[in-house]
Design a binder for these strands. Structure first.
Lengths: 196, 196
DNA sequence: ACACGTTGATGCACTCCGTGCAACTCCCTA
DNA sequence: TAGGGAGTTGCACGGAGTGCATCAACGTGT
């Protein structure tokens, strides 16, 4: 079985990216997103401002790059669920990867709070939503019964599930990071699906 | 019954705001959002750049201000639905105001397309989502059965409904503005609620 | 009629984000 | 050792957004 070759360049790039994002998050958490300039992040990381923009599309990307990776994890997990499993069960299982990510509860709360309490970043959550939706919907679609609107249906389901997760995250932050995120997620899903 | 007094200042301000937003939308539709500077909008409207920022928080606001008003219309319509009506029926009825807004099908498609095909504005949709959710959720909450997580449930329901509307809008744009938006919305809602 | 305060419009200068371009460094290879 | 590719950096520029001071318009009181 042929090993997949990962170019050395790509690896170092990924490492640097991750490192830059980490230092950026620390600064954002400490000083606030709006009160931190890209220049400061660059200085703290020991690179030039220009180089930062070689790694990230924009300032927002610095704070949100982690979310893209999470999206890919979720999609990957979803893809390996059995095709005859209940759709929502598969989605829940896919979201479960979020709790497997190694991260202290503290820093998880810190990051999540950062994403929610800043107006400039709320939209980032939207971007996340759009991207996750783009990843999940194509995987959901083949599971739906034939219809000339399966695409719309798949997108709606993906979007609704992500939305529930988002609502759960907000609540989770609101109550100070206590309790189980997936438990809140279940509550949200039940609310939209089972309610008269 | 005392007439509610609307200060003359507020009225003129609202009129000017609307006028500015209109000319901005025309320019955006003609040249594209990213290829249009705030300066150009100001010039086309016959005011200074600085004045534009007195009326709108930012460039995005120019394109999205209409959505806030729509949100208020929707919330108002929802509020006047009978409390014992099915929740999702009330939501559907509330969204129905969108089709009552006087607007040619062409310009409606033009505006909606503008909102979707530009990356910078996708987030605006998120802002819209957040705002509409903020308006609707408090109205939904008292309709839910007692629970210590009614707030979360209400927010999830509001968010899901808006998300369905958004998915429907995307599809509506994709198929070129043909057909009934609410019909697509119904399909989306059915997909997330009735599916196994 | 004149002075006054209030309100909004405007110009100016500034910070910050984001990008195109060109020079430079480092490493790998022929 | 010369050359080429890839990444880093500085520089300059355009555009968004903001704070501040000024100016014009308008109504009001004397």
């Amino acid at each position: 079985m042929a090993q997949k070759v990962i170019p050395i360049r790509a690896q170092t790039r990924a490492v640097v990216r991750s490192l830059l994002a980490r230092t950026a998050l620390e600064l954002f958490a400490a000083k606030g997103y709006d009160n931190t300039t890209v220049e400061e992040v660059a200085a703290a990381a020991g690179v030039s401002r220009r180089t930062l923009f070689n790694y990230f599309r924009g300032k927002d990307d610095l704070a949100l790059s982690g979310l893209s990776e999470q999206g890919e994890l979720i999609a990957a997990r979803f893809a390996e669920r059995p095709a005859d499993e209940d759709l929502w069960a598969s989605l829940r299982a896919a979201f479960h990867v979020l709790e497997e990510i190694e991260m202290t509860q503290e820093s998880r709360l810190e990051v999540t709070t950062l994403l929610f309490d800043n107006d400039s970043l709320r939209f980032g959550h939207a971007e996340k939503q759009a991207r996750w939706q783009g990843l999940l919907a194509p995987l959901i679609e083949p599971r739906l019964p034939d219809s000339d609107r399966r695409t719309l249906e798949a997108r709606a389901i993906a979007a609704a599930a992500i939305t529930c997760l988002q609502a759960a995250s907000e609540e989770w932050v609101r109550i100070g990071g206590q309790g189980d995120l997936l438990d809140l997620y279940d509550t949200a899903v039940r609310a939209i699906r089972r309610h008269p």
